Simulated assay, not measured.
Amino acid sequence: MPNTEPNDMIQDEKEKAPFLKGNLPLAIGAAVLVLGSGLLGYSVGHRQGLTAVGFEADAEQLVEVVQKQKTSLEALNKKLNATTQERDLAVSNANDLFLAVNKARDEHTQAESLAVLYREVLRQRGGLPLSVQHIAVKPLPENAYEYQLDLIQVSPSKARVSGSVEIRLIRGSEILVVPMADKNFNFENYERLTGRWTMPKGFVPEFIEVRLTGAKPVTRRFSWGKGPAIENQSAFLSEIPQTEPNAN
C-alpha cells in the first residue's frame, strides 16, 4: 500500500505557511489593538479614579473655606450690630447733652440778666457794701479741708473794691489762721476765693471767722460744722460738693 499520510502533512504545512505569512501583519495588528485597548482602559480608569479622589479633596477644602467665611461673616455682623448700637446710643447721649447744655446756657443767661437787674435796682437804692455772701468748708482725706468764700458788693458808681482776706479758726482762746495761697481780692460785683489747708491733728474749731480789710473792715463769724469726709478726692475744686456752715 502506498504511504500517503506524510505527503498530506507536507502538503498542509506548505498551504499554512503562505496563509500565516500573508495574514501575519493582520494578526500583529489585532494583538496590538487588543493590548492598546487594555492599556487605554487602564489609563482611563486610573485617571478617572484620580480625578474622583481630587474632586472629593477639593470639595472638602471648598466646604472648609465656605465655613470659615460664614463664621467670619457672622462675627462681622455681630460687630456691626454692636457698633451700630453704640453709635445710636452715642448720638442719643450727644443729643441729650446738647439739650442739657442749651438749657443750662439759657438758665445762666436768665440768671445773669436777673443779677444785672437786681444790681441796677441796688445801685439806685444806694448800693451794697462789701460783705461775705457765702462760705463753705468741706473735709477731705488726710485731715485736709477746702474752703470756698464768696464776696459781693454793689457800688452806686460801679467802682471796684480791693483788699485782703483772713480766715481764722477759733476754739476757746486758741486762734488758728488758715494759710491762703491768694488772700487778696479786687472786683466790681462778685468774687470767689478757694483754697485748701491741713488741720492740725486734734484741733477741732468751734467757729470759723472771716475778716475783710479794705476801705471798710468787715468781720463775720460762723459756727463750725463738720460733715462726712470725701472718699474720692477731686482734682477740680468746682467738682467737690459744697456745704454751708450755720451763721451765728
Results as ranks from 00 to 15, higher is better:
161 V>N: 09
156 P>D: 00
167 I>K: 06
141 P>D: 03
161 V>P: 01
144 A>H: 14
149 L>K: 01
163 G>T: 01
174 E>K: 11
141 P>C: 05
133 Q>D: 13
175 I>M: 07
148 Q>P: 02
168 R>T: 13
152 I>H: 15
155 S>K: 04
161 V>E: 04
137 V>L: 12
168 R>P: 07
146 E>K: 11
148 Q>C: 15
157 S>L: 13
169 L>R: 03
143 N>L: 08
164 S>L: 07
165 V>L: 05
168 R>Y: 10
151 L>E: 02
175 I>G: 00
142 E>I: 05
171 R>T: 11
140 L>V: 01
171 R>Q: 12
154 V>W: 08
154 V>K: 02
141 P>L: 02
172 G>D: 06
174 E>R: 09
159 A>W: 02
133 Q>C: 09
136 A>F: 05
152 I>S: 14
165 V>Q: 00
162 S>C: 03
141 P>K: 04
146 E>C: 07
171 R>M: 09
139 P>E: 05
165 V>A: 03
133 Q>M: 13
157 S>D: 13
164 S>D: 12
135 I>H: 03
169 L>P: 04
149 L>Y: 08
152 I>W: 09
170 I>F: 02
147 Y>H: 00
149 L>G: 09
173 S>W: 10
134 H>S: 14
148 Q>E: 12
167 I>G: 02
132 V>W: 01
136 A>S: 15
159 A>P: 00
134 H>Q: 13
142 E>A: 13
149 L>W: 07
138 K>V: 15
148 Q>V: 12
153 Q>Y: 04
175 I>V: 15
151 L>K: 00
146 E>Y: 07
132 V>R: 03
173 S>V: 12
171 R>V: 06
167 I>P: 04
170 I>T: 08
164 S>R: 12
159 A>V: 06
167 I>S: 07
132 V>Q: 04
159 A>T: 10
137 V>K: 00
150 D>W: 09
172 G>P: 07
170 I>H: 06
140 L>C: 06
168 R>L: 14
145 Y>S: 08
163 G>V: 08
134 H>F: 14
159 A>G: 12
146 E>L: 10
169 L>M: 10
155 S>M: 01
169 L>D: 05
150 D>V: 14
163 G>W: 04
173 S>Q: 14
156 P>C: 03
175 I>W: 03
143 N>C: 01
171 R>F: 07
162 S>M: 09
144 A>R: 14
135 I>Q: 01
135 I>E: 10
159 A>H: 09
154 V>H: 04
161 V>G: 07
149 L>A: 08
